Computed example of a mutant assay.
Amino acid sequence: MAGKSDKEILANSMYEDDPNGNSAPATTKDQESDQRQEVLKATNVTPPSAAPRWGPQNKGAQELASLYSPGKRAQEIICVYTCIGLMIINLILIVRHMRLERISVAIVSALCGIITADFASGLVHWAADTWGSVDLPLIGRNFLRPFREHHLDPTSITRHDFIETNGDNFMVGIPILGYLAHYFYIRSPSEIQLHFGWIAYVFLCSIFVAMTNQIHKWSHTYWGLPRWVLLLQSCHIILPRKHHRIHHVAPHETYFCITTGWLNWPLERIRFWSTFELVIEHFTGLKPRDDDMKWAKKLT
C-alpha cells in the first residue's frame, strides 16, 4: 500500500461518509462516524480538528468551485456528444469487420489498451496534481482547477453530472477516435484485418481513457451504485473505492492511476513518480504540489 498503513490513511484522509452528507444515508453515516471515532481512539490517533479541512465548507474548495464557467460547460457539452458519436461509429465499424480468427488477437490488444489507459490516467493525474497553478492562463482555471478542488472536497465529484464529470476525458478521446474512424474509411478490408489487433488496442484504450473520470467518480460513491459497477470494482476490473482512498492521504503523493489502478503498486515499488519529481525539482527548482498545498491552507 505504498508505505501507507491503515492508521495513516484513517488519520490523514477525509472519511467520505461525513462532511458532504451525500455519500451515505444518514443512519449509515452516523454508524460509520461512530466506528471511525472508536478506531481513532484504539489506535491513539488524534481526531481531525473542527476546522473544515476537507469538504464543501472549505474556503479553498468553495472558491475553486466558483471558477467553473459557462464557457467551460459549453466545451464539455460539445466534447461529450462528439465523443459519444465517434464511439458509436467506431463500434459499428469494428463489429462489421470482426472475424472469429481475430478474437484472440483483439482480446490481447484490448488488454494492452486498458493498461495503457491506466498509465495515461496516472501520468495526467500526477502532472496536474503536482505541477502548475490555477493562475496559469487557459489551462489553470479550465483544467487544473478541478484537480485542486477534488483534493479539498473529494466527493464533490459525486455531485457533478455526467457532462461535468466526463467532459475533459471525452475531449481527449475525440482525436483518437476520429483518426480511427478515418482509418476505417481509407483502408481496404484486407488492410483492416491485417491491423485488427492495433485497431482493438486503440479503440479500447480510447474508451477507457474517456471513461476514466466516470470510473473515478464511482470510486468516491459509497451508496446507490449499480450492482454491475460494484462487481467490476470488487474484481478490480475498474478502480476500487478502498484502493483509490490511498491517493487521498495528504499530501496526495501516491497511487495516481485511476482507470483500473493496476499499475499503482508496481509504479510505487520502483518509485516512478517520486524519482521524476526529484529530477524536475533539481533542474527547475519547482516544488511538487506547491499550488495544491496553497489551496489546502485556505481553511476558513
Rank of each mutant, 00 (worst) to 15 (best):
R159L: 12
D161I: 03
D161M: 02
D161L: 00
D161H: 06
F162Q: 07
E164T: 11
E164L: 10
N166A: 10
N169W: 13
M171N: 10
M171W: 13
I174N: 04
P175N: 02
P175A: 01
I176V: 15
L177M: 11
L177C: 03
L177H: 05
G178S: 10
Y179D: 02
Y179V: 15
L180E: 04
A181C: 09
A181I: 08
H182R: 09
Y183V: 11
Y183S: 13
Y185D: 11
Y185W: 14
R187K: 12
S188K: 13
S190M: 09
S190N: 14
S190R: 13
E191M: 13
E191Y: 08
H195G: 05
H195K: 08
F196H: 05
F196D: 07
I199W: 07
I199K: 06
A200L: 00
Y201V: 07
Y201L: 14
Y201P: 08
V202S: 08
F203R: 06
L204G: 04
L204Q: 10
C205P: 06
S206V: 12
S206R: 09
S206T: 15
S206N: 11
I207K: 00
I207G: 03
F208Y: 15
V209M: 11
V209Y: 01
A210D: 08
A210C: 14
N213A: 07
Q214W: 13
Q214N: 12
I215H: 06
I215S: 01
I215T: 10
H216D: 10
H216P: 11
K217G: 08
K217R: 14
K217H: 13
W218T: 00
W218D: 00
S219N: 07
S219G: 08
H220K: 03
H220R: 05
T221C: 03
T221W: 06
Y222I: 07
W223R: 07
G224I: 06
L225W: 05
R227E: 15
R227K: 15
V229A: 06
V229P: 03
L230C: 14
L230H: 12
L230F: 07
L231T: 12
L231A: 10
L231F: 13
L231G: 03
L231P: 06
L232K: 00
Q233K: 02
S234E: 11
S234V: 01
C235S: 13
H236M: 09
I237W: 01
I238C: 01
I238L: 01
I238D: 03
L239C: 00
R241V: 06
K242H: 12
K242Q: 14
H243I: 01
H243D: 10
H244R: 03
H244V: 02
R245P: 08
I246V: 12
H247Y: 05
H247L: 04
H248N: 04
P251L: 06
P251T: 05
H252N: 10
E253A: 11
Y255R: 00
F256R: 02
C257M: 04
I258P: 02
T259M: 08
T259G: 10
T260I: 00
W262D: 01
